[in-house]
């Protein structure tokens, strides 16, 4: 709040003062009051007005300057009301109360959404567990009847169910994972065995090296992530997947490389964006643009970094970087 701004804001008041004083002067002259007395009275009144205005300006400035600087420093602007002291001047108090009330109402609103979101997510989790029972039942029935014709479709249903589950998990603010040492080898082979039939039907070659290492992550989430990468390799015509672990003092990197159709350079920066399908999505097979988005979200939540590099027609490589924090290790 600048002085000039304050004066401009108060201009009408000054105009009224001046008009009234001009009228008073006319009267004083009419009654032949001595000029010296008029000057002294004018100066005194002027000083009084200036002093009163300065006082009003200064106390307002103190409040609003603090408000503005708090506002610019806060990364969550809605916390402003928590930072403000109640001012002693009337319009400041009105503003303060208004801000506090608006804030409270917003918090209630958010809490309501959070509750609804949580309920929805819990329902999704419940639903996923429920729908898995008939899928499991069907799978056993097929096996018992010696019919393998439906296996592929059942596996696809299960994959789509997992997608919904992990999408819900990735979007939720709740911590429902646990970080502990997980063997890369174990997770990878578990995913590979689960997808064995489809991988073999595509004539896929799997090559693994240096996976004898533990990373700090949630095993189930990682197995979903690797499953997603594998299903992308299958979708985009890869015939070979090379999985390699690389150990550094401060991190472990999992390289997942396939020789599929690759990703155009112009699409590469966007592949982790929600619903981005890009050129491959248009020209190739059905793509929802959700797979890699969920992968990225899950990695973010677990504190891993995920990177992609690719040369069209040659390879696609997704790298997941696991941090090594000594604090993580709770034995």
């Amino acid at each position: 709040m600048k002085l000039t701004e304050f004066i401009r804001d108060r201009l009408i008041a000054y105009l009224i003062y001046t008009t009234i004083w001009a009228l008073v002067l006319v009267f004083l002259f009419a009654f032949h009051v001595p000029v010296e007395a008029i000057i002294i009275a004018s100066v005194l009144i002027m000083l009084g007005v200036i002093a009163a205005e300065m006082w009003a300006f200064l106390r307002k400035r103190r409040f609003y300057e603090k408000l503005m600087s708090d506002l610019s420093q806060l990364d969550k602007k809605y916390l402003l009301s928590e930072m403000l002291d109640e001012p002693e001047f009337l319009d400041g108090r009105i503003l303060h109360n208004a801000i506090c009330e608006a804030d409270k109402s917003m918090c209630e609103h958010i809490a309501e959404y959070r509750r609804e979101n949580k309920n929805f997510r819990e329902y999704i989790e419940l639903w996923v567990h429920e729908i898995k029972l008939p899928v499991a039942g069907l799978q056993l029935m097929c096996h018992n009847d010696g019919n393998t014709r439906y296996n592929e479709q059942l596996r696809r249903i299960d994959d789509y169910i997992e997608n919904v589950l992990y999408y819900a998990r990735s979007e939720s603010a709740e911590k429902d994972y646990i970080i502990k040492p997980v063997s890369l080898k174990r997770v990878f082979s578990e995913v590979a065995v689960r997808n064995r039939e489809e991988l073999q039907a595509h004539g896929m070659n799997l090559k693994t090296s240096e996976l004898d290492t533990d990373v700090m992550t949630d095993g189930k989430w990682l197995s979903f992530i690797i499953g997603q990468l594998m299903s992308n390799s299958l979708k985009y015509d890869a015939t070979e997947i090379i999985v390699k672990g690389e150990d550094f003092p401060d991190r472990t990197v999992l390289h997942f490389r396939d020789n599929g159709i690759g990703i155009p350079e112009s699409d590469l920066p966007f592949i982790f964006d929600k619903t981005f399908t890009g050129e491959n999505g248009r020209t190739h097979k059905k793509s929802t643009g959700m797979g890699l988005y969920i992968v990225k979200k899950l990695c973010d939540r677990l504190g891993h970094t995920v990177e992609a590099s690719s040369v069209q027609g040659e390879f696609t490589e997704i790298s997941i970087i696991f941090g090594k924090n000594e604090l993580y290790k709770i034995e």
Partner: peptide, 29 residues
């Protein structure tokens, strides 16, 4: 189980389960 979370697996293993298989399971596995 169809409760496919690491928490359930860790809990089960710590209570003395010998293995943890999630539904739907491949019968061969």
């Amino acid at each position: 189980t169809s409760r496919n979370t690491e928490i359930d697996e860790v809990l089960s293993m710590s209570y003395g389960a010998d293995d943890f298989v999630t539904k739907p399971y491949n019968p061969t596995i």
